[in-house]
């Protein structure tokens, strides 16, 4: 059955294919348009460079009025990513607007990788190292990058 959410997701997918932002990709899973797989490539000139990080995006029938649940499947070491892969990002919570689409979500997460917000930590160890011991932080991140090749 076509619902506004499903119809909108078809449009999001079409736009993502026709006008793909650099460094991100995403597509619905084979038999369910409400669940997507996505990949974000680690941005250049950051410790995440060369990483290919996988995510899942789960939509409800309330999309785009409510944000989807986005989660990293790849292991991440980042101040704003929880141990279970959940992401602490304002536009996925209280600053969500129905005018955002999948492209906007993925590019926002991509820029979160470049610019972590250590003041609102989801992973306090990562936040602390990011602030106080950048070398160790980068070492831990690089380990994730290498892990992402295998995942």
């Amino acid at each position: 059955m076509s619902t506004p959410a499903r119809r909108r997701l078809m449009r999001d997918f079409k736009r993502l294919q026709e006008d793909p932002p650099t460094g991100v990709s995403g597509a619905p899973t084979d038999n369910n348009i409400m669940i997507w797989n996505a990949v974000i490539f680690g941005p250049h000139d950051t410790p995440f460079e060369d990483g290919t990080f996988k995510l899942t995006i789960e939509f409800t029938e309330e999309y785009p009025n409510k944000p989807p649940t986005v989660r990293f499947v790849s292991h991440m070491f980042h101040p704003n990513v929880y141990a279970d892969g959940g992401i602490c990002l304002d536009i996925l919570q209280n600053r969500w607007s129905p005018t955002y689409d999948v492209s906007a979500i993925l590019t926002s997460i991509q820029s979160l990788l470049s610019d972590p917000n250590p003041n609102s930590p989801a992973n306090s160890m990562a936040a602390q190292l990011y602030k106080e011991n950048r070398r160790e932080y980068e070492k831990r991140v690089k380990a994730c990058v290498e892990q992402s090749f295998i995942d």
Binding site: T69, N80, Y82, A83, D84, G86, C88, L89, D90, Q93, N94, L112, N117, N119, S120, P121, A122, N123, S124, M125, A127, Q128
Partner: peptide, 26 residues
């Protein structure tokens, strides 16, 4: 970012809250 979580995590910033789960989602 994550305004809702901020109040909850401030006090425990010294400890490792990775184990306390995803507050935003709760």
């Amino acid at each position: 970012m994550g305004d809702q979580a901020e109040g909850l995590t401030n006090n425990s910033s010294e400890t490792n809250i990775e184990s306390s789960g995803n507050q935003d989602e709760l």
